[in-house]
Design a protein around this nucleic acid. Sequence first.
DNA 1: GTCTTGACGTTTA
DNA 2: CTAAACGCCAAGA
Length: 115
Amino acid sequence: MSKKYSPKTIEFFERVYSVVQHVPAGRVTTYGAIAAHLGSPKSSRMVGWAMNASHSRYEVPAHRVVNRIGLLTGAAQFDTPKLMQELLESEGIKIENNQVINFNQLFWDPNKYLS
DNA sequence: GTCTTGACGTTTA
DNA sequence: CTAAACGCCAAGA
């Protein structure tokens, strides 16, 4: 780990990764839900930032994290823009126009499944 | 030191 | 209904 990040940031990353890693295959969650679970509903941007850092740091299923409407906003940050969609489809999730179908059904709320 | 940018979300016009 | 502004917090220029 680089030391350029503040201790608070490192801790924040760890929490985000922990939640994302608990997301079961075939399910998706949102940045806002993770942020809310961490105690800061309005810090959803930080979650996205953590995910951006995670893509080259830890093995986190970042493809299961989408924005509040199920849009694959982070697809461009993957090695290839199609990778995120392919991974989701590989888990049985249908994607239409960069958006998750049945998002409401597939949504996995960390606050509901984690203490 | 200030200013801009960002894998977001909510509120207001 | 859509479009824009604000809030949030950290990093990079």
